[in-house]
């Protein structure tokens, strides 16, 4: 069974009347992987996740999750999935405990992790006894995480999971993700928060306007896309011409400038820049956020490697 990819999407297209939510998207997520699904709001992430969970019917393309068709084999697939929607909506009349009971009853499976998860996320018995209509966004999100993980699913699909969580709870969440990965679970994490993807995911797919831009390892993405060259001048003159390096879209702040330069061109760029009266220079690997912006500047989608 482990030879079967956890998620296999081929040419997925989803149209809503005259709007295309996802356009010919293909990607594969391996079993046991923590996979990031990255893109700004409206890029098609949630639509893709809903197709994976059988909520939406693809207009075109083929979707397999744990080797099963999410629509045709929904009853076999759903017991193995834990899902946290991007905009978590709960029944306001129910208490937290009643909500978890309801969702466990619908899951039709034991919930071996509920007590532990509630404890770690700070959902105490008095909090769980209150109607969810009185919950803060963060508390609702914690409840959402418990319901997604309480039955210890093989595949966890999380849409913007850290929205509303305070930093301490985010740490607990990252620990839970790490444990899931160590336990051989597959995690698909959709987000537009780059540091959390950078921190938790091995590979990442980037989508834009419903199309796949790239699928790469996080490390590979950072390595391949850009280096940040930071020059510091000390003459107080501020912004000045940088010659050929102007094409790297310099970002000035007083006497300091940052340039994002492709790895193959760093040496050449430095030769030209060091001819200036530079007080200090640093070259570092760009973060995922810079790589992401770099990809978005590049334009056109590429096929998955």
């Amino acid at each position: 069974m482990d030879d079967v990819p956890a998620i296999e999407v081929t040419g997925l297209t989803k149209r809503y009347e005259d709007v295309t939510g996802v356009d010919g998207l293909s990607l594969t997520v391996r079993t046991g992987e923590v996979f990031g699904f990255l893109g700004p709001n409206g890029a098609g992430k949630t639509t893709t996740l809903r197709c994976l969970t059988g909520l939406l019917r693809p207009t075109e393309g083929r979707v397999r999750v744990l080797g099963l068709d999410p629509l045709g084999e929904h009853l076999r697939l759903a017991p193995r999935i834990g899902y946290l929607p991007g905009e978590l909506r709960l029944y306001p009349e129910l208490s937290g405990a009643e909500t978890l009971d309801l969702l466990a009853a619908l899951q039709g499976a034991p919930v071996p992790r509920r007590a532990e998860l509630c404890d770690r996320l700070g959902l105490t018995a008095p909090i769980l006894a209150r109607p969810v209509s009185g919950y803060s966004r963060g508390m609702k999100q914690k409840l959402g995480l418990v319901q997604a993980l309480q039955h210890d699913p093989r595949l966890v699909v999380l849409d913007e999971p850290t929205e509303g969580l305070d930093p301490l709870v985010q740490e607990t969440f990252f620990a839970l993700l790490g444990e899931a990965a160590a336990g051989g679970r597959t995690v698909l994490l959709s987000s537009h928060i780059l540091p959390e993807v950078q921190r938790t995911c091995g590979r990442v797919a980037i989508v834009r306007d419903g199309r796949l831009v790239t699928v790469e390892s996080v490390a590979g993405l950072r390595e391949a896309r850009a280096r940040r060259i930071r020059l510091t001048f000390d003459d107080g003159q501020g912004r000045r011409p940088l010659g050929a390096a102007e094409r790297w879209a310099p970002q000035w702040q007083d006497d300091r400038v940052d340039l994002l330069v492709p790895p193959s061109e760093v040496v050449g760029a430095l030769r030209g820049l060091l001819a200036l009266r530079v007080a200090d220079v640093t070259v570092e690997e760009a973060g995922l956020d810079e790589a992401f912006l770099d990809l978005y500047r590049d334009g056109g989608p590429e096929e998955e490697a």
Binding site: T53, H74, Y83, P85, L106, G108
Partner: peptide
Amino acid sequence: ESGTVELVMVRPVS
């Protein structure tokens, strides 16, 4: 309309 259908229908509920 409320969005609660997502929580219900991702479970083994036909």
